[in-house]
Amino acid sequence: MGHQLIGQALGGKTFKMKFGHHGGNHPVRDDRTGRVDISAQNHNYAVDPESLPEGVQVTHINLNDQSCAGLVFPKMKLMSLQYHPESSPGPHDSDLAFGEFVELMKSNRL
């Protein structure tokens, strides 16, 4: 739900999905690299990418239905994913996401 809340906090809208995403084995593509990860998901709502403000970049797409599965907003040093990287269905598919988060935190130390 954090991804959805971030989308709304940025001024975007969410919508109820017809079936939602539940369970493992959801393919998600990182559009920045073309890499496809296998993810575990459990949600019924999605962020509408067309409603996001300028500067917010959709980074990940669910390949089953093309819904927004990740975004970044460099201006606010923010990233989010619409799946559970900690559940590791890949089992190491989401390691890059955690690495990206750690690097984001390191680069923004006070």
Rank of each mutant, 00 (worst) to 15 (best):
Q66W: 07
M76L: 03
V36I: 10
L63K: 02
N108Q: 10
E50Q: 14
Q66R: 08
G12Y: 00
G70Y: 03
D48K: 03
L81C: 02
L10T: 04
K18S: 15
H21G: 08
Q8A: 10
K75D: 07
L104H: 02
Q82K: 01
G20Y: 06
H26C: 00
N62T: 07
L71M: 11
N108C: 08
G24S: 13
G90W: 14
K77I: 12
D48M: 01
R109M: 15
F101K: 11
E86C: 13
D93H: 09
V102S: 12
Q41K: 11
G24R: 05
K16T: 11
H43I: 09
S80T: 04
H60K: 09
K77D: 12
G11P: 08
D31G: 13
A69Y: 00
G34E: 08
G34V: 07
M105Y: 12
L71T: 03
P27T: 14
P53F: 02
H3V: 04
D93G: 15
H84Y: 06
F101A: 09
L104D: 15
H21T: 04
P53A: 00
D31W: 03
K16G: 14
M79C: 15
V56G: 00
K75F: 11
D37C: 11
R29V: 03
L63R: 00
E86K: 10
Q57V: 10
G2F: 01
A9Y: 10
A46E: 10
H43F: 02
V72G: 12
N44M: 04
K16W: 02
P91Y: 08
P53V: 00
Q66F: 01
G34I: 02
V56R: 00
G34R: 10
G90F: 14
T14W: 01
L71R: 06
L63E: 03
G7H: 09
L5F: 15
D93L: 04
I6A: 12
L71F: 08
V102D: 12
M1Q: 11
S67T: 14
E54M: 09
T59M: 09
T59Y: 07
S80G: 07
S107N: 15
V28D: 05
C68Q: 06
F15L: 13
S80L: 00
